[in-house]
Design a protein around this nucleic acid. Structure first.
Length: 810
RNA sequence: GCGGUUGUGGUGGAAUUGGCAGACACGCUGGUCUUAGGAGCCAGUACUUCGGUAUGCGGGUUCGAGUCCCGCCAACCGCACCA
């Protein structure tokens, strides 16, 4: 047996490969596990610690599952389109395709070095035509079913990345990629109708085995709000304005209306007299960045439009204003203002001297200082006086509905997913524009629309593909006239919204997936990746999966049944690893010195998987020591030979052995790798002890082989090396996972804590079969307890089986 | 502002449903074996005035609270003028 090192890794990786050990059976086996980690972005730097952390530990889980008899499908691929490669190309002049392909080659090598159970036969790369052909096909399906559409809309524009961003990628007015401020710009863009699925995306959350935190983030992002729509006439105009409000109960306190500067109603209500002032205001707010607009929440600005709206119930006329505290893309872009009961309206009304009408008192009917934004009782509201907020909502909506002026309405903060990107390195949108036929989808038989190589990708404010004549010029498939291709590419999140469906049949040239295989393998049983995708990838993928179901590709309702977010490994200084801080850890250095298994086992042992924590070199040394220890145990066993003696069990060791099997199995199952390793350490200590005392070799073999099986998910190379040295010619991966024997965990005597009034006083040894009375008697007989109880009366004695006995005395 | 997470020894971290707080390690101390040891083995290691006190702080429920409830504090995360 060779002492464990990187050489051992290489030896076994080669053998596993040759044996095709990790190839999935792909049969109609009922016991399947689809294990998936979020695929990697092909970066120029080597695999970093985060990759090891993200990939090696779920791999341990998958290895156990395989040994438990599951057909484990564990694929890996590359999310290969996207801005970093293109930005790198702009800096270096190296083509994104070339750099990406080179990076992938390197990363594959390094990923193999971890020793994960990937089925490389199903590897996929989103930037290859064989993949993006189907991304384009997906776009066409969505288009065909009205879920992809084109509209001019205010969008998030990053002037540094020269592209539009989805709301999810421009959160807080900051570009998710480069950190620059995002500008608002009106552009014609392609959108996916994710809002059609808002309610279902919300409803599906409770049943998912996902971190609650992540569900909250999605819930928050979808932002359901129940309220009402109210429609107002505009004086002297043939125009109705509909607003959304969650406080229709305050309708009688209406004192003005506000439109977002970019709302659809805006231009129609501006009277000639106020045209200049309004135009100036609209221009001014368009110029402001998202940050400027939201940063000064207390400072409201606005301008009167010259028009008046009519209160649908009282007929009273109220002025219509423009103000950029109203958001064009939420609700209808128009709101009714009730300054007495809304903080924003309060500030605005005070600033511009608009009337303030108090209509809500508190629940007891007492008037409150304004603005009063709680629920309460109606006052000054005519026939609605005295109703509670909830009652008033119902009554008002009913009255409005009779007049055809209102209805209940659910609103969502979620907006449609903007997927157009004015960049080169992405999947071309499979649409063309014909002067006669308009936007025409590329026929499916003509897919893929290939991304040309010889393109000037340095940004000049328009899509790089626009300047490639050969790409742009095409023929309309409907009328045969010259037409022009769409020159924008798709958001890379489109590519990653469906990749999990492609894996089982990654190289199928005839279809995006094999329906039978997809049905068999979906949903993903365990999905592992960073929490930063909570409101992006994880939401998009759920949407696409549901949309596919509704388009007739029925796999199920949810793609990822169980989700785990790995924590973050910090530098040894406790800060996030960064090059500028100089606290990064390069896995390669450690792996060369200690081998993959030592590194993996340290990752398993040193941190809680979902929390992460600071890196410590000393921890790694401790694991190296543990390796030396258990290899010595195995070597000593082999050298001693003599397995002919009768196999005589060691009772104490049997207890540790079966306790280890039980705990390690449960701990790996719930991703508590650190405690699993702790139990393995206890087992090795116990085996060592037995080995040094008088022992039966024939018995020890069984225990040692169990240990090798149990440690193999964390240290697969070293495990196979030991397995071979123990005389086997197959792989540990093919062995059955040990099963614990409950009988071995039952001891003859057990130890119970003895408390007096809840305070620990002593412990008592009793036979495992002792009755409650016998336990009480034994406990009272203890000198310390007798002393504590002396002169006091026992009011109650509580016996918790297997745990403790508590005497309550007065 | 709203929603959420976290807070345990010198350190990393344990503690299924409330039931012996600090598993397993690191570090430290002592012993042992060694020509030697950054190795192995054994023991100790929260604080303590030895009665007790301890899981961010203050209350509460309970025979019993790190765990449940209420109120604070701190750090972090998500959303944020969403009507």
């Amino acid at each position: 047996m060779k002492p464990y090192s990187q050489k051992v890794d290489q030896k076994w990786q080669a053998r596993w490969d040759a044996a095709g050990l990790f190839r999935t059976r792909m049969g109609a086996d009922d016991k399947k596990i689809y294990l998936l980690e979020m695929f990697s972005y092909p970066s120029a730097s080597k695999l970093h610690l985060g990759h090891w952390w993200n990939y090696s530990l779920p791999d341990s889980w998958g290895r156990m599952k395989h040994m438990q008899g599951y057909d484990v499908f564990h694929p890996m691929g590359f999310d290969a389109f996207g801005l970093p490669a293109e930005n790198f190309a702009i800096r270096s002049g190296i083509h994104p395709k070339d750099s990406t392909e080179a990076n992938i080659t390197t990363m594959e090598q390094q990923l193999r070095g971890i020793g994960c159970t990937y089925d490389w036969d199903t590897e996929l790369t989103t930037c290859s035509p064989e993949y993006y052909k189907w991304t384009q096909w997906l776009f066409l399906q969505l288009y065909k079913h009205g879920l992809a559409y084109r509209k001019e809309a205010p969008v998030n524009w990053c002037d540094s990345c020269k592209t539009v961003l989805a709301n999810e990628q421009a959160s807080g007015g900051i570009c998710e990629r480069c950190g620059n401020e995002v500008l608002r710009k009106s552009m014609t863009q392609w959108f996916f109708k994710i809002t059609d699925y808002a309610q279902e995306l919300l409803d599906g959350l409770p049943a998912l085995d996902w971190p609650e935190k992540t569900k909250r983030i999605q819930e928050n992002w979808i932002g359901r709000s129940a309220g009402a729509e109210v429609t107002f006439d505009v004086v002297d105009k043939d125009l109705k304005i509909t607003v959304f409000t969650s406080r229709v109960d305050t309708l009688m306190g209406l004192s003005y209306m506000v439109l977002a500067p970019e709302s659809a109603y805006t231009q129609a209500v501006i009277t000639p007299e106020y045209a200049d002032a309004c135009a100036a205001y609209i221009q001014e707010s368009a110029r402001k960045s998202e940050i400027e607009r939201t940063g000064t929440a207390d400072e409201k600005t606005g301008v009167f439009t010259g028009s008046y709206a009519v209160h649908p119930l009282t007929g009273q006329q109220v002025p219509i204003w423009l103000a950029d505290y109203v958001i064009a893309t939420y609700g209808t872009g128009a709101v009714m203002a009730v300054p007495a009961h809304d903080e924003r309206d309060w500030l605005f009304a005070n600033k511009y001297d608009l009337p303030i009408l108090e209509v809500i008192a508190d629940k007891a009917g007492e008037r409150q200082p304004l603005p009063y934004c709680e629920h309460g009782t109606l006052v000054n509201s005519g026939k609605y006086d005295g109703l509670t907020t909830a009652e008033a909502k119902k009554a008002l909506v009913a009255d409005l509905a009779q007049l055809g002026r209102g209805n209940e309405k659910i609103n969502y903060r979620l907006r449609d997913w903007s997927v157009s990107r004015q960049r080169y390195w992405g999947a071309p949108i499979p649409i063309l524009y014909c002067p006669d036929c308009g936007a025409v989808p590329v026929p499916e038989r003509d897919l893929p629309v290939e991304l040309p190589y010889d393109v000037e990708f340095r940004p000049n404010g328009q899509s790089p593909l626009a300047s490639h004549a050969g790409f742009r010029a095409c023929t309309c498939p409907q009328c045969g006239k010259p037409a022009q291709r769409e020159v924008d590419t798709m958001d890379t999140f489109v590519c990653s919204s469906w990749y999990y469906l492609r894996y089982p049949d990654a190289h199928n040239a005839a279809a995006p997936w094999d329906a039978e295989k997809a049905k068999h393998f979906m949903p993903v049983d365990k999905y592992v990746g960073g929490v930063e995708h909570a409101a992006m990838h994880l939401l998009y993928a759920r949407f696409i999966y549901k949309a596919l179901r509704d388009m007739g590709f029925a796999f199920g309702d949810e793609p990822f049944q169980s989700l785990v977010h790995q924590g973050v490994i910090l530098g040894s200084d406790g800060f996030k690893m960064s090059k500028t801080r100089g606290n990064t850890v390069a896995p390669d250095d450690y792996v060369q010195k200690y081998g993959s298994d030592v590194f993996r086992l340290y990752l398993a042992f040193g941190f809680s998987y979902v929390d992460g924590g600071p890196w410590k070199d000393e921890g790694l040394l401790a694991i190296a020591r543990f390796f030396a220890k258990f290899q010595t145990v195995v070597e000593t066993f082999i050298e001693e030979g003599n397995e002919t003696a009768p196999a005589q069990e060691d009772k104490e060791l049997e207890y540790v052995r079966h306790n280890t099997i039980k705990s390690v199995t449960a701990d790996i199952e719930r991703f508590q790798f650190n405690t699993a390793v702790a139990r393995l350490m206890e087992l090795v200590t116990a085996i060592g002890k037995t080995q040094r005392s008088g022992h039966s070799q024939a018995y020890l073999r069984g225990v040692i082989e169990d240990f090798v099986r149990l440690v193999s998910p964390f240290a697969p190379h070293c495990a196979d090396e030991m397995w071979e040295a123990l005389g086997h010619s197959d792989f540990v991966y093919q062995q059955a996972w040990p099963v614990f024997d409950e009988k071995k965990l039952q001891l003859d005597t057990i130890e119970l804590a003895v408390q007096v009034n809840g305070k620990l006083r002593d412990v008592v040894q009793v036979p495992a079969t002792a009755s409650q009375d016998e336990i009480k008697a034994a406990a009272q007989a203890l000198p310390k307890i007798a002393e504590s109880l002396a002169g006091k009366s026992i009011k109650k004695a509580i016996v918790v089986p297997g745990r403790l006995v508590n005497f309550v005395v007065g």
